[in-house]
């Protein structure tokens, strides 16, 4: 209980900071006045300047955090996450390709298609001749697919007109600049829906976590359940990519971090904690990336990358020590 309180207070603090900090500092009092009067600099900040992007950041972080936890529970490995395994780069590639070739589909659909395709490729490529599939092969193949998709995106970007290319490049790193209420509504709407879909599958998840044989013995149709969970996980990641680009490492970090802070172990609680932590990490990274260099707005992905890369290295070293690598 105390853990949840800590987590929620941290998120509330981060949201407030994100609304306060920018080119002009807004005090909480100004924001408060703006909220109730609907006029003045406080109101402008809330309604136009920082409100939508803060909410978008929180929403994107939440769906990414939940997505990472789906794969971490399913594969029982802290390295499993849509960013590490290429689903997010796949979604990013689909979006860039869509823009480059003028495909007139909504971004979330493009991202979802790319993410699902990447997941399918990773799954198929990691099947061994004898039909077995190890978690580790899956993750390594995912890293490979991730590099491939990122390279293909970069290639497409070089073929774009200069201004478009600059925007696309920025988006590919993961960016939250100039987000509108539409972005916020989109990620929160799709995210809430996917959360409901996930809630229905939580019991099956809790059994799959015990291993396939036990899960099957406890009445789970494992192939169906796993496919459902993978699709939900990929779609969650795609919902995040559609509004914020393939922001790296949020999905990887949020789950383990949230689990520790909230002190929970059950899948439903882990997913919730991961969503809150994902929002927290993303909002904080956004605040820092906006205020680190005065007058310059770094893409949020640069910040999450700076935070996440050391974590990934630490995780790899830990796994290597435990003999898992």
């Amino acid at each position: 209980m105390k853990g949840w309180l800590v987590l929620i207070s941290l998120l509330a603090g981060a949201l407030l900071l994100s609304l306060m900090i920018g080119q002009v500092l807004m005090t909480p009092a100004m924001l408060w006045t703006g909220l109730w009067s609907g006029t003045g600099p406080g109101a402008l900040t809330l309604r136009v300047l920082r409100g939508p992007s803060t909410l978008t950041a929180a929403g994107a972080g939440a769906v990414l955090g939940a997505s990472g936890t789906v794969f971490q529970i399913l594969l029982r490995n802290p390295l499993a996450a849509p960013d590490v395994m290429g689903f997010m780069s796949g979604a990013g590639l689909a979006v860039v390709a869509g823009v480059a070739f003028g495909v007139l589909l909504p971004l979330p659909l493009l991202a979802a298609a790319g993410g699902l395709l990447a997941a399918l490729v990773v799954t198929l490529l990691s099947v061994r001749p004898n039909g077995a599939q190890s978690t580790f092969t899956l993750i390594l193949v995912g890293i490979g697919v991730s590099f491939f998709a990122a390279a293909a995106s970069s290639f497409l970007v070089t073929r774009m007109p200069p201004q478009e290319a600059a925007d696309a490049q920025r988006w590919l790193v993961g960016s939250l600049s100039a987000r509108s209420w539409q972005h916020a509504a989109q990620v929160w709407g799709i995210g809430s829906l996917l959360f409901l879909v996930l809630a229905v599958q939580v019991r099956a998840m809790a059994l799959l976590e015990l291993g396939d044989d036990l899960a099957a013995g406890l009445g789970v149709r494992i192939n169906r359940a796993r496919t459902g969970l993978i699709c939900t996980g990929v779609l969650l990641a795609a919902a995040g990519v559609a509004v914020a680009g393939p922001v790296p490492f949020v999905a990887l970090m949020a789950g383990p971090l949230g689990m520790r802070i909230a002190g929970v172990t059950q899948p439903g609680a882990r997913l919730t904690a991961a969503a809150i932590t994902g929002a927290l990490v993303t909002v904080l990274a956004d605040v820092v990336s906006r205020s680190l260099v005065p007058g310059l707005q770094l893409p949020v992905g640069v910040m999450t990358g700076l935070m996440g890369a050391p974590y990934l290295l630490w995780l790899l070293m830990k796994e290597a020590e435990a003999g898992e690598l």
């Binding site: 809790a206 976590e209 015990l210 044989d213 013995g217 059950q266």
Partner: peptide
């Protein structure tokens, strides 16, 4: 009607005995 306990199962990290046993009620 039928339950099976496979050879050397692995528990999820940090899970308590009670939480593990509760999952047996799912069916």
């Amino acid at each position: 009607r039928l339950a099976i306990l496979p050879q050397s199962p692995k528990a999820p990290e940090g899970i308590t005995v009670a939480d593990l046993v509760r999952r047996g009620r799912t069916p």
